[in-house]
């Protein structure tokens, strides 16, 4: 029998848990192995000693001194609160830096660190932006066209007015000059006729005078020489 078996047997005996076979082996060891028997006897003496052991009563001592009020702190005094607070701050920083996103759409919760959108979202986003851009452009163009048309109308009116006014004045000036020219022509004509008549009158006067001075000639035609 090994030493370990002896330890086990003695331990089982001390705890009163020997099986039938172990009890037989134990009893055999007690009779055959003096060393083992001595240990068993010593164990018995120890048991007896515990039963008869009496010791002086504990001395008077300050039991209250062992009590320090370490009552559980309130929840707001929890020691882990600063650590938890710092951990949350670090977590928030990490979430910001890594672009952590939480999205709820169409009864779907998405968590992710990527800022990349899926194709559908990108298309919708682009479409929205293009629509907005188109509407803004249309509004600008509409305003511009309105302004241009208005300016054009105004310019046309001004031009028409100018043209009408200028043509009227020119015609008036032209007529005035025509009248002036005609008047001048008439005046020239009158002067010419007057001069012709004067010359004729002089010629006639001269002939009359000549005839009166030369009666021989009076039978002839005084104007035939001329």
């Amino acid at each position: 029998m090994t030493e370990n078996d002896k330890h086990t047997l003695l331990a089982a005996w001390l705890e009163d848990s020997l099986t039938q076979a172990q009890r037989k082996a134990f009893e055999q060891l007690c009779t055959e192995d003096a060393d083992f028997a001595l240990r068993v006897e010593m164990a018995g003496r120890c048991f007896s000693a515990t039963e008869s052991f009496t010791a002086p009563a504990p001395p008077a001592w300050n039991k209250s001194a062992t009590f320090t009020d370490n009552a559980s702190p309130r929840w707001y005094q929890w020691q882990g609160l600063p650590v938890a607070s710092m951990a949350m701050s670090v977590l928030a920083l990490v979430m910001v830096i890594t672009g952590f996103r939480v999205e709820v759409s169409d009864s779907r919760l998405s968590l992710g660190f990527s800022e990349r959108l899926d194709a559908q979202e990108v298309a919708a986003l682009v479409e929205d932006r293009v629509d907005a851009y188109k509407q803004a452009n249309q509004a600008v163009f509409r305003d511009y066209a309105d302004a241009l048309a208005s300016q054009q109308r105004q310019s046309s009116a001004e031009l028409t007015e100018y043209l009408l006014a200028s043509s009227r004045k020119e015609r008036r000036e032209d007529f005035a000059e025509l009248v002036k020219f005609i008047n001048q022509q008439r005046s020239d004509d009158q002067q010419f006729y007057a001069r012709q008549l004067h010359n004729l009158q002089q010629d006639v006067s001269a002939l009359e005078k000549h005839q009166s001075m030369n009666p021989l000639i009076s039978g002839g035609d005084p104007l035939a020489d001329e």
Binding site: E3, N4, K6, L10, A11, R39, M42, C46
Partner: peptide, 20 residues
């Protein structure tokens, strides 16, 4: 381990016997 405890007690008993 429990075996160590048993072993220590086994040795202690022999020593106690000697002392007594």
């Amino acid at each position: 381990s429990p075996n160590t405890a048993k072993s220590r007690l086994y040795s202690a008993l022999a020593r106690l016997k000697l002392e007594l």
